[in-house]
């Protein structure tokens, strides 16, 4: 399957994030050879009905990928145990300055949404 200009759907264009699937386990951050992923999270206690004691869950506060440093190796996508990271064929995200290549949760979540 290709898009209108012939780029295959599985092309390594950009890395998209599904924040709801991320458990803030930090595997991607630690394994990234380019050190281009940064993650911030905090712990919250969740009491579920019927549970004996509250459960501690990590809540994602910030997640950034610096595409100026990323070398598109895909190790983060391969290693994520929860499939929170995935390749999308989008490539049109050039920026006028290096800081413009740093994408946060909102931008990373937007990739691939229009094709769903």
């Amino acid at each position: 399957m290709t898009n209108s200009i012939g780029i295959p759907a599985q092309a390594h264009g950009v890395i998209a994030l599904t924040a709801s699937a991320c458990t803030s386990c930090m595997i991607c951050v630690r394994e990234c050879p380019a050190w281009c992923i940064e993650l911030e999270s905090h712990d919250e206690e969740v009491t579920e009905p019927g549970a004996r004691r509250p459960r501690t869950v990590s809540v994602l506060d910030a997640f950034t990928i610096d595409f100026g440093l990323c070398m598109y190796c895909g190790i983060c996508v391969d290693l994520c145990p929860f499939d929170a990271l995935a390749w999308q064929p989008d490539f049109d995200y050039a920026a006028g300055s290096p800081s413009g290549l740093v994408q946060g949760i909102n931008e990373l979540e937007s990739w691939g949404k229009s094709r769903e």
């Binding site: 930090m26 951050v29 630690r30 394994e31 990234c32 050879p33 050190w35 992923i37 940064e38 993650l39």
Partner: peptide, 19 residues
């Protein structure tokens, strides 16, 4: 770059050597 930028994967509660 490895000297100037702190490793983003450093755990908060212990020291770990980056890969």
């Amino acid at each position: 770059a490895r000297m100037l930028k702190p490793w983003p994967g450093q755990p908060s509660h212990r020291k770990q050597q980056p890969i």
